[in-house]
């Protein structure tokens, strides 16, 4: 079996603020195989975006990676120099942001920005770079790419802008794309179009994808594996169908129960009481304890993530079993 594209081991990214140390990412591990899609799911403040930023080396002070390894094709990115990262970023690893205007420069034409990106990592002629830019725009479904290359970002609609951002990420056929909520701000029909494009690309180019989102429904249709984060930690990890059909962690079960769907019309949703704790003052023990219906004495100690079934990991002393689910 080939080595995975990305292997994150015990990653810790902390922010040293005046109010104290915020452990935004605390002991996160997962792997992404070649051509696979990992859905990284969590609510606001769960550390999913900081995990993505850590991988691509965009964590700014007061934050820094304080431990763990990010093995990208065997190289540890956590200890890579800025020069090494520059060689990889945009070339072998790319990122797509929620707001495409974070990727695009509003005062430069699309062709300027795309050609610049091509030339940054490849010694080709200007004309070849333009050709590449045009082909990539066509690949993400932008009509008449030749004319659109001459446009400015403001001349595109939100969905089209996101396509341009995706095209820029694809320019060098990266091995890994980190996508941070790229469709959250878009309308559903446009989101459907983008998801279809992304899915096609992952299948045809063998690019691995980390899809960061709060939306379990998107992950359900798109991803192969899922990692659920809560308060800076992965609480559950496994194949999408396993995790969504038979969640082991009470938080995952609560999240699934919170999603309105056709099976639960008119009934009260099974909600999770309370709210996410502040990362500044996490209580000792399991961070989900205070909201958990299954919390017990044992949860005062800190749970480790462990493999309960082959390919299934959960960070819980009292995981949901089928018997427990029926009792609930």
């Amino acid at each position: 079996m080939a080595a995975p594209t990305l292997e994150v081991r015990n990653l810790r990214t902390h922010f040293f603020t005046r109010a104290g140390v915020v452990k935004a990412v605390d002991d996160v591990s997962f792997t992404v195989e070649r051509g696979k899609v990992l859905g990284l799911v969590g609510e606001s403040g769960s550390g999913k975006t900081v995990t993505g930023f850590s991988i691509i080396g965009l964590v700014d002070p007061p934050g820094r990676i304080v431990g763990g390894q990010i093995l990208f094709q065997g190289r540890d990115l956590a200890t890579a120099t800025e020069a090494e990262m520059r060689g990889l970023r945009g070339n072998r690893i790319a990122m797509i942001f929620q707001d495409p205007m974070m990727t695009l420069n509003p005062v430069l034409r699309i062709d300027t920005q795309m050609i610049e990106t091509v030339l940054a990592h490849k010694k080709v002629s200007h004309e070849e770079a333009r050709q590449r830019a045009r082909d990539t725009l066509g690949m993400v479904g932008i009509p008449s790419p030749d004319e659109r290359l001459k446009s400015y970002p403001h001349q595109f609609s939100g969905g089209m802008r996101q396509r341009v951002a995706i095209a820029i990420a694809l320019l060098h056929e990266p091995d890994l794309i980190v996508a941070d909520e790229p469709t959250t701000a878009l309308d559903v029909t446009i989101q459907g179009q983008i998801l279809a494009e992304v899915q096609k690309l992952a299948q045809t180019t063998g690019t691995s994808l980390i899809w960061i989102t709060h939306d379990l429904s998107v992950v359900a249709g798109l991803a192969d594996d899922i990692a659920v984060m809560y308060a800076g930690r992965v609480v559950e990890h496994g194949a999408v169908s396993d995790v969504l059909d038979r969640p082991l962690h009470p938080y995952t079960a609560g999240l699934i129960g919170s999603v309105p769907s056709r099976n639960k019309r008119g009934e009260p949703l099974r909600q999770i009481p309370g709210m996410t704790p502040s990362l500044l003052s996490l209580p000792p023990g399991c961070a989900f304890r205070s909201r958990c219906p299954r919390a017990a004495e044992a949860c005062l100690a800190e749970p480790e993530i462990r493999e309960t079934l082959p390919g299934r990991q959960v960070r819980c002393f009292r995981p949901m079993t089928e018997a427990a689910e029926q009792a609930a």
Partner: peptide, 13 residues
């Protein structure tokens, strides 16, 4: 076009 939690790896229409 609506993503659904019941759906599994599928082609988005």
């Amino acid at each position: 076009a609506v993503p659904r939690i019941e759906s599994r790896k599928r082609a988005f229409s």
